[in-house]
Design a binder for these strands. Structure first.
Lengths: 145, 145
DNA sequence: TATATTCTATACGGAAATAATAGACTTTAA
DNA sequence: TTAAAGTCTATTATTTCCGTATAGAATATA
């Protein structure tokens, strides 16, 4: 399951992605609009900032804005920051690999073999879908109502 | 992440899938062979039995055996018993649907839209891969060493 | 029929992860 | 100088996962 942290991160980035031509947006405003606990959101935005996705400005009139084009922020990157691995088993993870506790024959493990395929299928989607795509999808969905 | 419960379930089914022509196998033996905590495995096998995948026999000489052909036991079914939903967001789940806490506009949610695609990609693999396939994959991997 | 063997069922407890909150500090605009 | 922001770390609360315990029911076989 996606953590709330990840969902909040994506939602915040979507809001900021619609705000690119305006002055930076305050945490409080994002939290309010998306109904995210403010203090929790602070932590999340900080992580995204430290990973280079956000620009922040302190003091009066400060706030957050995207540091990249929404087209260049992919879900896979966000998820790796907030949730960590994409794969469903640690032994199939590209960026967060470690051996499974239970496993003692990784090279011949049939479970691993299947979940490498699952990882690849998931990864293909998540690494092709950007914040801009999410916004576009929402616009399409709204139009088709 | 896959729970240990699910991994243990798959491993137990694989062991039983290699044992189809022999008398039922005791929990203790499966637990020993696969190094699974026995009491935990009892619960898991019980769930699989109640779902119709296993046949069990009490008393001396009793034990567990598969109630279906290994070709007809798909990973998706096992996972739904042990872990529940396949989708990464509850609002995208086919068998365990419920609204996300945070969400108030499900029909136009871009996150949901993407994770429906992820679910479909995952589901395709998991509903095509059976216990027999896992065994076959392991044999292939062993041969190619 | 007695007994050991094996599965059945439910309840419990600790550990880890997740979610949220708190408070003190830093920077900046006006 | 002060109010408005973000920064950073610690702490608490909640939930889920993993494993254990215990009592019970069914069955083979001696």
């Amino acid at each position: 399951m996606l953590s709330k942290k990840t969902k909040y991160a994506i939602k915040a980035l979507v809001v900021l992605g619609k705000n690119t031509d305006k002055p930076p947006m305050q945490i409080s405003k994002i939290a309010e609009e998306e109904r995210i606990p403010k203090k929790f959101l602070e932590q999340i935005l900080l992580d995204l900032r430290n990973a280079g996705f956000l620009y922040s400005k302190k003091g009066a009139g400060g706030g957050y804005s995207l540091n990249k084009d929404p087209k260049d922020i992919y879900l896979v990157s966000i998820m790796r920051i907030t949730d960590g691995p994409i794969a469903m088993v640690p032994c199939a993870s590209l960026n967060f690999y470690h051996k499974c506790d239970e496993c003692h024959q990784e090279t011949t493990c049939g479970i691993r073999s299947v979940f490498v395929d699952v990882r690849d299928a998931t990864l293909k989607i998540l690494s092709e879908t950007s914040i801009a795509d999410i916004i576009a999808r929402e616009n399409t969905l709204i139009t088709s109502l």
